[in-house]
Design a protein around this nucleic acid. Structure first.
Length: 819
RNA sequence: GCCGAGGUGGCGGAAUUGGUAGACGCGCUAGCUUCAGGUGCUAGUUAUCGUAAGGUAGUGGAGGUUCAAGUCCUCUCCUCGGCACCA
């Protein structure tokens, strides 16, 4: 052991030991309990950023901890390699996206290795390779045959100058980011997966996910948005047609004063044929990008269509409007407007001078309301509703639903906010959708023996559109059914497709014959998934959906892919997310070069609890670095003394000795709980530092003192080893051990060391701290009370007052209440 | 706009079940060590009043519940994440 801590040298040495020994190769072993730990795989954007370092350190700490608990751990790594940035880089650098991607992967792999993560690199996957994506093509064709795939028209952002579809990210202030042209909504045919068929299961199974943060389950539940309601038909005056609306508040039906259509609604288009101003209004609505946030924050605009609907109960004429805030995708693309009882309708009615009819009134005891100030949106009792008067909202829901159902003008339905998953992307750098279009046979899935449909990697970008769209070599083919000339689909899959099943592929990444094999049954589900909170809804929902699809296709039996989920917060600097555009990025490489991987790992774990955002500070890195240097020095000095003694059984310890041992074993309990249950790695490190500080104050060179020092040092090294594995390995050897620290058992607390003879109690007067008492641990309630009342501060602060009562919280405090 | 988080010293954060606010670390101040330092050590460090002992205030803001509130309730302000084609 060197006298000085030299992270660069030792980290390299320890890493080559691991490599030589194949320390982290995961092998299925049914005799051992398995633990599958997975951190969300990165997009190979160029180099690692601090968010990656945080994510992968979290996963590695958990993996190494579980291994020390005796589990058979799988921790794989791979690359979410398809995506938009590669195309942008390709256009900029005039090089194929594949080239850029593979280069980035090579660089980032080296960075991950430099950080010492315990990955089984033999299982590495890159989703842009045909060995990987061929299986999702195969899977898609299976889903197609099962009827879980369909084609329909859907809206995209269209750049009229570049003649291309834009991602939401590429639309800035309503204009294409390259061309600057005003973006239009355009409808094009696309492929969809029937995720709504699984809406109930996806929402109901959230209850099983006890290892998930409550907030994530809530977000998913709200995203799916299951609501009980009624679908109501309004006939249209003068037309042999009707209009369907969905409402969760049929009790307000008698207060309807308007029906509003989405601009894309066919009836709006029909009405616009005779009304140029309506046509213009609808055209105007097309110039917004396809994003809910955009729609929801738009100024609410509407226009009368001139048509009238007939109220299904009263038979009254209700004007039909077209409004920009009605979503064609939700429900039936039309809503009934009840200004008295819906705030948005109320505002719309005020803006356009529509009638407001109150029909729900507060039940007894509820506050009155003022329609001049806003809508009354709570439930209540019906009035002005004919035969339904006097019913509560709940009763009226049923009565009106029954009435409409009997008349065949409505029915109870369950509606979801969730929409089917559109998986088509009009981009090059993605997995080709395995469909062939034949004029006679229609859309045919590519037969299994013709898979994979390989994406050509050697391409040149002419302009911004996908090269395969203009490559007859790619798209010209023959119909697998009738043999006549046909064309391939040139759209590719949404990249969420790849990340929805990679966790299964890691179990058997080397299988070239099947998507998965029996090894998934051993490893799945993932025991611990770790990733950014920004994935709380989309990625995690799609992955859950895919898991259920894989189950139903018969691949393997598992309902939920991730048993425990840890969602890490963002890494920020100066209060903002690190990004190139803000110029506030911190390059982890520079820190690794300067302090070593262990310090970077220790800092990211120490600076904040994992779920919170981490505010980056350059100078704070010094603390963990100093700590490692001090620890190194302490072990160096200790091993120079050459002592190998352990505590003789039956030795009576003096006060300082038993106090340090108690601290040690309390710390074992604390750290085990922090890492194993609470995931508060920051406090586990703080507790270890406290223990270390106590050790440095312990200067006892007797045989027993030295033995206790050894016990403390060894335990500190073991407890830190998941976080700082390199230095721990070297120190472990310096303490006289000849095996890997990552194969050691996690330390256990010695109950006998935890026993306390005395306890300290807090004394309060009227809830304010006035003193402290040291009493025997077994002191009775009466003794505690008497000691408190005899305390000089208590006497002083209670002087001239009457002691009303004394509250004793055993083992914690005494509060004397005096008035 | 909707859904979900968060707000505690100069800074990152701790306080796990309603029970000592500020653990641990950074920074700063003073002193010591060293030829030197991107070194090490010791002490102090919420504000405020006080020579001190000690007092008082204090967890974004305003109310409330309680013997006791950072923690529970109501309202409110601000920041962050997501909103279906960024990944």
């Amino acid at each position: 052991m060197q006298e000085d801590y030299n992270p660069k040298t030792i980290e390299k040495e320890v890493q080559s030991l691991w490599l030589e020994n194949q320390s982290f190769k995961a092998v299925e072993d049914t005799d051992k309990e398995k633990f599958y730990c997975l951190a969300m795989f990165p997009y190979p954007s160029g180099k690692l950023h601090m968010g990656h370092v945080r994510n992968y350190t979290l996963g590695d700490v958990i993996s190494r901890y579980q291994r020390m608990l005796g589990k058979n751990v799988l921790q794989p790594m791979g690359w979410d390699a398809f995506g938009l940035p590669a195309e942008n880089a390709a256009i900029k650098n005039k090089a194929p996206p594949a080239h850029w991607t593979y280069q980035n992967i090579d660089y980032m792999r080296e960075q991950l290795q430099r950080l010492g993560f315990a990955y089984d690199w033999d299982r590495e996957i890159a989703t842009c390779k045909p060995e990987y994506y061929r299986w999702e093509q195969w899977f898609f064709t299976r889903l197609f045959k099962k009827g879980l795939v369909y084609n329909k028209k859907a809206t995209v952002n269209w750049d009229p100058v570049d003649q291309t579809v834009l991602a939401n990210e590429q639309v800035v202030d309503g204009r294409g980011w390259r061309s600057g042209a005003l973006v239009e909504r355009r409808e094009i045919p696309q492929w969809f997966l029937r995720i709504t068929d699984y809406a109930d299961e996806l929402i109901d199974d959230l209850d099983k996910l006890e290892g998930w943060p409550e907030q994530v389950r809530t977000m998913q539940s709200n995203w799916i948005g299951r609501s009980q309601g009624v679908e109501i038909e309004f006939s249209i005056e003068g037309r042999n047609q009707s209009l369907t609306v969905f409402t969760t508040r049929p009790d307000t039906l008698m207060g309807v004063t308007c029906v509003a259509l989405a601009p894309e609604h066919p009836l709006a288009a029909a009405a616009a044929q005779t009304r140029p101003e309506l046509h213009e209004f609808i055209q105007g609505c097309r110039q917004t990008k396809v994003a809910e946030a955009e729609m929801a924050t738009l100024e609410k605009l509407g226009m009368n269509t001139g048509l009238f609907a007939v109220h299904p109960i009263s038979g009254e004429r209700v004007p039909i409007w077209c409004a920009n805030f009605v979503l064609m995708e939700y429900g039936s693309g039309a809503v009934m407007s009840v200004p008295a009882h819906d705030q948005r309708d109320w505002e719309f009615a005020h803006q356009y001078g529509l009638d407001i009819h109150a029909v729900i009134y507060p039940s007894d005891g509820q506050a009155e309301f003022n329609l001049a100030e806003g809508a009354f949106t709570k439930k209540g009792v019906l009035r002005n509703s004919g035969e339904f008067d006097g019913l509560t909202s709940g009763q009226a829901f049923e009565a009106i639903a029954d009435f409409l159902q009997a008349q065949d003008r409505g029915r109870r339905i369950i509606n979801y906010r969730l929409r089917d998953w559109g998986v088509s992307r009009q981009r090059y750098w993605g997995c080709p959708i395995p469909i062939i279009y034949c004029d006679d046979c229609g859309a045919i899935p590519v037969p299994e023996d013709q898979l994979p449909v390989v994406l050509p990697e050697d391409v040149e970008f002419q302009g911004v559109s996908s090269p395969i769209k203009s490559s007859p070599q790619f798209y010209q083919t023959t119909c697998p059914q009738c043999g006549s000339p046909a064309t391939r689909e040139t759209d590719t899959f949404d990249t969420f497709f790849e990340s929805s099943w990679y966790f299964a592929r890691f179990c058997c990444a080397d299988n070239s014959q099947a998507m998965v094999d029996e090894r998934v049954n051993y490893w799945m589900p993932v025991d611990q998934y770790v990733g950014g909170i920004e994935h709380a809804v989309l990625h995690l929902l799609y992955a859950r959906f895919f898991q259920k699809l894989m189950r139903d296709i018969g691949l393997y039996n598992c309902d939920e892919p991730f048993t425990r989920l840890l969602t890490q917060g963002m890494v920020l600097k100066d209060g903002a997310k690190m990004s190139k555009s803000k110029g506030n990025t911190v390059d982890p490489q520079a820190l690794i070069d300067r302090y070593g991987a262990d310090t970077v790992r220790l800092y990211t774990m120490f600076a904040a609890p994992p779920e919170q955002s981490l505010e980056w500070s350059d100078s704070s890195v010094e603390g963990p670095y100093r700590f490692l240097k001090k620890l190194w020095k302490q072990v160096y000095v200790f091993q120079q003394s050459g002592s190998r003694v352990t505590i003789e059984p039956g030795t009576i310890l003096n006060e300082a000795q038993s106090s340090l041992r108690r601290k040690l074993h309390e710390t074992i309990l604390k750290v085990s709980d922090d890492i194993g249950r609470r995931y508060t790695f920051n406090t586990s490190i703080a507790a270890t530092m406290e223990l270390f500080n106590e050790l440095t104050r312990f200067e006892d060179v007797t045989a027993t003192g030295v033995a206790i020092t050894r016990e403390v040092l060894e335990t500190i090294v073991l407890m830190l080893s998941p976080v700082v594995p390199h230095i721990s390995q070297v120190l472990w050897e310096a303490l006289g051990h000849h095996h890997f620290v990552h194969d050691c058992a996690w330390p256990k607390a010695d109950e006998s060391a935890l026993i306390k003879a005395t306890i300290e109690l807090v004394v309060q007067v009227n809830g304010k701290l006035r003193g402290k008492l040291t009493l025997p641990a077994d002191a009775s309630r009466e003794a505690v009370e008497a000691a408190a009342l005899g305390n000089e501060n208590v006497i002083r602060f209670a002087e001239g007052k009457t002691i009303v009562k004394v509250i004793v919280v055993p083992g914690k405090l005494v509060n004397v209440v005096a008035v």
